[in-house]
Simulated assay, not measured.
Amino acid sequence: MNSPTSLNQTGPLRHPLGLPAGSVRAALTLMVVAFIVYQTATKHEIGLLWSETLMIVLAHYFTSRRFVELPKEVKEDLIARGVYPHDEQPLFLPRHTIRGVIILAFAGLSIYLYREGTLFDRKSIAIVGTVGAYFLGLLVNVIVRWWRGDKRGASWWEDTKAVITLMVVAITLVVELTGLSAALPIKPEDLQNATLGLILFYFGSR
């Protein structure tokens, strides 16, 4: 049976480029966000691949991660023995810096588009609206958890969100698959954006 000290005989774990864990992902995230913000601000079309990539990086940085937190004394002892890696933030930046940059980037983009009078254009709303829906879900989640005392488990709020989201997505899928979108008073892309925004709101509020 391996002893705690034998677990680290091969030396400390080296992350890509010798940087702290998550640094490459952080750099890629900042590159994607910068590209999306620039393309939207300059009224260029955002490809589906880039939109999907943006949603992936948002989910990575803002989705709740549930884990067992070790007591401070236990963690310090494990770090001293080389069993538990010392936590270094991506790119050596302060904690939550990447999240803050993402939020500020899209907040700044929204202000810029509003001043330009293009905030509610179709191209702008496809990005700003869906990202905003995700951030709104995160904010609602924080408020609801504070109000409920951070309790876990199903509630009328969780059930209501689930039912509404499932119904809207199901209806949208039926409309898309049956070709009924042409008979609706709104354009198909507007329906898709609204549905995507609702899905992102749901994931953000979990």
Score class of each variant (00 low, 15 high):
Gly11Tyr: 04
Gly11Ser: 03
Gly11Arg: 05
Pro12Phe: 07
Pro12Ile: 07
Leu13Arg: 12
Arg14Glu: 10
Pro16Tyr: 03
Pro16Ala: 03
Leu17His: 12
Leu17Asn: 12
Gly18Tyr: 05
Leu19Ser: 01
Leu19Cys: 02
Pro20Asp: 02
Pro20Tyr: 01
Ala21Pro: 01
Ala21Tyr: 03
Ser23Met: 01
Val24Thr: 04
Arg25Gln: 11
Arg25Ile: 07
Ala27Phe: 04
Ala27Lys: 00
Leu28Cys: 09
Leu28Glu: 10
Leu30Trp: 02
Leu30Met: 06
Met31Tyr: 07
Met31Phe: 08
Val32Gly: 00
Val33Asp: 00
Val33Lys: 00
Ala34Lys: 03
Ala34Asn: 05
Phe35Cys: 11
Phe35Gly: 03
Ile36Thr: 04
Val37Gly: 00
Val37Glu: 02
Tyr38Phe: 09
Tyr38Gln: 07
Thr40Glu: 01
Thr40Met: 02
Thr42Met: 10
Thr42Ala: 09
Lys43Trp: 11
His44Trp: 06
His44Leu: 11
Glu45Met: 08
Glu45Phe: 11
Gly47Lys: 09
Leu49Thr: 14
Trp50Ser: 15
Trp50Asp: 14
Ser51Arg: 14
Ser51Pro: 03
Glu52Thr: 14
Glu52Asp: 14
Thr53Glu: 09
Leu54Gly: 10
Met55Leu: 15
Ile56Asn: 08
Ile56Lys: 08
Val57Asp: 00
Val57Lys: 00
Val57Asn: 00
Val57Ala: 00
Leu58His: 03
Tyr61Phe: 13
Tyr61Trp: 15
Tyr61His: 14
Thr63Val: 01
Ser64Lys: 03
Arg65Asp: 00
Arg65Ser: 01
Arg65Val: 00
Arg65Lys: 14
Arg66Gln: 06
Arg66Asp: 01
Phe67Gly: 03
Val68Ala: 13
Val68Cys: 11
Lys75Cys: 12
Lys75Asn: 12
Lys75Gln: 15
Lys75Ser: 15
Asp77Leu: 14
Leu78Arg: 05
Leu78Asn: 05
Leu78Ala: 12
Leu78Tyr: 10
Ala80Lys: 15
Arg81Thr: 13
Arg81Ile: 13
Gly82Ile: 06
Tyr84Ser: 07
Tyr84Met: 13
Tyr84Phe: 14
Pro85Glu: 08
Pro85Cys: 07
Asp87Gln: 13
Gln89Lys: 13
Pro90Asn: 05
Pro90Glu: 02
Leu93Tyr: 02
Pro94Glu: 07
Pro94Gly: 07
Pro94Arg: 07
Arg95Trp: 09
His96Gly: 05
His96Tyr: 12
Thr97Asp: 09
Thr97Trp: 09
Arg99Cys: 12
Gly100Phe: 07
Gly100Val: 07
Gly100Pro: 08
Val101Cys: 09
Ile102Met: 09
Ile102His: 00
Ala105Met: 10
Phe106Asp: 02
Ala107Ile: 15
Ala107Gly: 13
Gly108Asn: 08
Gly108Arg: 06
Leu109Glu: 02
Ser110Val: 04
Ser110Cys: 12
Ile111Arg: 09
Tyr112Gly: 02
Tyr112Ser: 05
Leu113Trp: 02
Leu113Ala: 10
Leu113Ile: 03
Tyr114His: 12
Arg115Tyr: 14
Arg115Gly: 14
Gly117Arg: 06
Thr118Gln: 12
